[in-house]
Simulated assay, not measured.
Amino acid sequence: MMKVSINQITPRWKDGKIVDVQIYFTATTTDGSVNLSGYVPIDSFTDSIDFKALEDIIKQKVADRILNSESPTA
């Protein structure tokens, strides 16, 4: 299991509107053998923040990137 901590949420603006956000995170396995840090871009962001949902999105995007060598913007 991996514990994800969201450290920062940075909105990116265009014409006075948020077009996407970058979610900066750190993650560690429960036994401490794996540590990750980075950010993932999220383009479907709303005014309310569901941190559990963001953690799930981060886990999925990181897994996709590792397993499929996908671009973080894909």
Rank of each mutant, 00 (worst) to 15 (best):
residue 1 M to C: 00
residue 1 M to Y: 13
residue 1 M to I: 00
residue 2 M to D: 06
residue 3 K to C: 10
residue 3 K to S: 10
residue 3 K to V: 11
residue 6 I to Q: 00
residue 6 I to S: 14
residue 7 N to Q: 08
residue 7 N to H: 06
residue 8 Q to I: 02
residue 8 Q to N: 03
residue 8 Q to M: 04
residue 8 Q to K: 14
residue 9 I to F: 15
residue 9 I to W: 04
residue 11 P to E: 11
residue 11 P to H: 04
residue 13 W to Y: 04
residue 17 K to S: 10
residue 18 I to K: 12
residue 18 I to Q: 02
residue 19 V to G: 02
residue 19 V to S: 09
residue 20 D to C: 15
residue 22 Q to N: 03
residue 23 I to G: 03
residue 23 I to H: 08
residue 25 F to G: 11
residue 27 A to W: 01
residue 28 T to N: 02
residue 29 T to N: 02
residue 30 T to V: 11
residue 31 D to G: 13
residue 34 V to G: 00
residue 36 L to N: 06
residue 36 L to S: 00
residue 37 S to L: 10
residue 37 S to D: 15
residue 37 S to V: 06
residue 37 S to G: 14
residue 38 G to N: 02
residue 39 Y to A: 12
residue 41 P to N: 10
residue 41 P to C: 07
residue 43 D to V: 02
residue 43 D to H: 12
residue 43 D to C: 13
residue 45 F to P: 05
residue 48 S to R: 09
residue 51 F to K: 12
residue 52 K to Y: 03
residue 52 K to M: 07
residue 53 A to H: 04
residue 53 A to I: 03
residue 54 L to H: 13
residue 54 L to D: 08
residue 55 E to M: 09
residue 55 E to H: 08
residue 58 I to S: 00
residue 59 K to G: 01
residue 59 K to H: 08
residue 60 Q to A: 04
residue 60 Q to G: 03
residue 61 K to R: 15
residue 61 K to A: 08
residue 61 K to M: 11
residue 63 A to S: 09
residue 64 D to K: 13
residue 64 D to A: 05
residue 65 R to Q: 11
residue 65 R to E: 13
residue 65 R to N: 15
residue 65 R to S: 15
residue 66 I to E: 05
residue 67 L to T: 15
residue 67 L to N: 04
residue 67 L to V: 07
residue 68 N to D: 13
residue 69 S to V: 14
residue 69 S to K: 14
residue 70 E to Y: 07
residue 72 P to Q: 13
residue 72 P to H: 12
residue 73 T to F: 13
residue 73 T to M: 07
residue 74 A to H: 08
